[in-house]
């Protein structure tokens, strides 16, 4: 009896997804960008979100840490419902403190890096942990240096963002997200603004993160990366989930016609 009840507890904790959305809608004026997305990502999953431009994939990702406010629907983060209240066009944040707390748990990496240009790399890393999470400076500094070492930027800790290459900036931005010790990492086209020869160094860091079992949601156009690294593909088209499945299934072809068309357009360049 005892062992079976323990098993039941283990099952319920495992069943709580890292992030889940129910019937998530988003429209800008008359334009409906998301038409009801039901989605969940389990802890440890790496989900690649694919789709043509205008499919709503970036908007969807940005809704997950409320950079975009959905127009309707529900959002849970580790089982906790994000408190939203009705507004004019979109839902509104009902509890800013809750959102700010959850945002440190669901960290975002942007296409344009968005490092704070008036701060050194190290200060960029320490900013949120010290001022938002209110952790001790010494501990945060140690953590920041460990993370910088990991992304290969320790010797550039005192450089300013303008002094770094695009690839270095994006690695610093990933480090900035990691220092907050988030439980989920969101990547919004992390390599799209990079020169082709700098893409590899960023993807390598992301590969390492995926390999250590981190929960990651990645909007990307790097098909090979999505196929090799992700545990699940989410294919959006016109604001809906058109196809979903393991990379082996989907990239094998024949599962979804539109996905196959999308991929073939890509391989043609």
């Amino acid at each position: 009896m005892a062992s079976s009840s323990r098993l039941a507890i283990a099952d319920t904790t495992e069943a709580i997804p890292a992030i889940s959305t129910a019937d998530l809608h988003k429209h800008y004026g008359g334009l409906e960008v998301l038409k009801g997305i039901d989605f969940h990502a389990n802890d440890g999953e790496v989900v690649a979100i694919l789709g043509a431009s205008g499919s709503g994939k970036s908007t969807f990702l940005r809704c997950l840490n409320l950079l975009e406010l959905p127009s309707a629907g529900r959002l849970h983060i580790f089982g906790e419902e994000v408190k939203l209240r009705p507004g004019d066009a979109n839902l509104r944040i009902a509890d800013r403190k809750q959102i700010d707390r959850l945002r440190t748990q669901v960290a975002m990496v942007f296409q344009n890096f968005c490092l704070w240009s008036h701060m050194s790399v190290l200060d960029n890393l320490m900013e949120a942990p010290v001022h938002v999470q209110r952790r001790g400076r010494a501990e945060v500094r140690d953590e920041a240096e460990t993370v910088l070492k990991r992304v290969g930027l320790l010797e550039r800790a005192n450089a300013y963002p303008a002094q770094l290459s695009g690839g270095q900036q994006q690695r610093a931005a990933i480090a900035r997200a990691l220092v907050m010790k988030p439980r989920v990492l969101l990547f919004d086209e992390p390599t799209s603004a990079l020169d082709p020869e700098l893409v590899g160094e960023v993807l390598k860091v992301m590969r390492d993160l995926a390999a250590e079992g981190r929960t990651m949601l990645i909007v990307t156009h790097e098909m090979a990366f999505a196929r090799d690294v992700s545990s699940r593909i989410l294919f959006l088209e016109k604001g809906r989930i058109e196809a979903e499945g393991s990379p082996q299934q989907l990239f094998g072809g024949g599962v979804n016609e539109r996905f196959d068309q999308f991929i073939s357009r890509f391989s043609q360049g």
């Binding site: 840490n65 950079l67 800013r96 959102i99 700010d100 707390r101 959850l102 945002r103 440190t104 960290a107 975002m108 942007f110 344009n112 968005c114 490092l115 704070w116 240009s117 900013e127 949120a128 001022h131 938002v132 999470q133 931005a173 900035r176 907050m180």
Partner: peptide, 23 residues
């Protein structure tokens, strides 16, 4: 100002006051 940098602060959970003061 670069809106992206302000957005990055928001995404890190900064309150409006903290954003104003630090960024």
């Amino acid at each position: 100002l670069d809106r992206g940098q302000i957005e990055a602060g928001t995404a890190c959970g900064m309150s409006k006051l903290l954003l104003l003061r630090r960024i």
